[in-house]
């Protein structure tokens, strides 16, 4: 791991990423590529798109998302993800903590200027 600020930011990004996935699934179900494309629209959130798939596998294993296979118009069936009840609770808990954390850091950064 590279030292310095880049690595600190990478650490934060990695911690927040799974909740960004859960947040994208809050209102609709999505399949893998669709999720990756939506995450890719957030600047600097994902560096290697392929690493999203192992993360999705863990969210499945931990029961934070449910999955269902659906036929697609073009090509083979796709695995769709949706938020499970436990994923919903996890997302709500994170969102609350995140807002407190973000506001606290923002306040300190403002003071420092």
């Amino acid at each position: 791991m590279e030292p310095g600020n880049a690595s600190n930011l990478a650490q934060l990004r990695r911690g927040a990423l799974e909740f960004c996935v859960l947040a994208l699934l809050r209102d609709e179900e999505r399949y893998g590529f669709d999720l990756v494309r939506a995450l890719g629209e957030v600047d600097g959130l994902v560096t290697s798109e392929g690493t999203i798939y192992p993360l999705l596998a863990r969210l499945r294993r931990d029961g934070l998302v449910d999955t269902v296979w659906r036929e697609s118009d073009s090509g083979p069936p796709r695995r769709y993800y949706r938020l499970s009840p436990s994923g919903k609770r996890s997302l709500a808990a994170f969102a609350e903590d995140w807002i407190r954390f973000r506001d606290g850091v923002d306040r300190l950064l403002e003071v420092g200027r």
């Binding site: 799974e18 290697s48 392929g50 690493t51 798939y53 192992p54 993360l55 863990r58 996890s90």
Partner: peptide, 16 residues
């Protein structure tokens, strides 16, 4: 890098 992520995710848990 994808394989390394898959290996490390096997042993990690959600922060919540």
């Amino acid at each position: 890098e994808i394989a390394a992520a898959a290996l490390s995710e096997r042993h990690s848990h959600s922060a919540y």
